[in-house]
Design a protein around this nucleic acid. Structure first.
Lengths: 125, 125
DNA sequence: CTGAATCCACCCAGATACTG
DNA sequence: CAGTATCTGGGTGGATTCAG
């Protein structure tokens, strides 16, 4: 019904590339993963995603909102209250992301072993 | 049998974080995805992952090799021949990555719409 | 062919301070 | 509370050159 198999991330100019970076990027991926637990306010996210700065979190969330993966709902009360949540598409992507992350963290023991072996084999001096 | 649920990517100092960046990073993710089609030589990968530089590809592959996700097999003939392939763990991660990428590219039409709406609503002047 | 090494420009990301 | 604005240092990534 629709034109299948159109967008190819391997293509240099494919518009899907920047979106992929928004989703899998350093902070974007963690923000998506955090929001999979349910809607959250800005500072909640900030606390959940340890180490992220105000600037980078705001920036990542804006990119995801622009991609239609995250919703931003403002309550114009005082103090200001802003809630972030995943859109339907965002939820699917977040689930796949968490699946990947889950497998990765589960593999950490063997990964750490591999790193140690590698570092030992490539030790300088 | 093993200590479950130990590593948490949301923790600032968790060793899983850099690994996640290796896997989902700009070039790492595409390299993994490309290798899911089967073993490949350096320049084959370079052609497949359009836009990647020698330096970044070599760097990304090294990181993935160190993490035990990619195998590097050298044939000391002349000219040199080096073949990259996924390890068992790497294959699982690559599959999950391609699953995510597939859904994302399939959602591109709606994502592009969202971007356009967003840009229009936030137009300057 | 497959990288490593060097140089360098640019952008990103952190810190800080300020606004709504 | 939820951002924006500005400044700045350091890291990233590209081009080029050299080596195994």
């Amino acid at each position: 019904m629709d034109s299948d198999v159109d967008y190819d991330v391997f293509g240099a100019a494919c518009p899907s590339r920047p979106v992929l970076e928004d989703v899998t990027g350093r902070w974007g991926s963690l923000a998506m993963g955090a929001l999979a637990d349910g809607p959250m306010r800005f500072n909640e996210l900030r606390r959940r995603v340890e180490g992220v700065s105000q600037k980078m979190l705001a920036q990542s969330l804006q990119a995801l909102e622009r991609d239609g993966l995250v919703n931003r709902q403002v309550q114009s009360t005082f103090p200001l209250k802003v809630e972030y949540s995943l859109t339907p598409t965002g939820e699917v992507l977040a689930a796949k992301l968490l699946d990947l992350i889950g497998y990765l963290t589960g593999s950490m023991p063997s990964i750490l072993d591999a790193q140690q072996s590698y570092d030992q084999a490539h030790a300088k001096t």
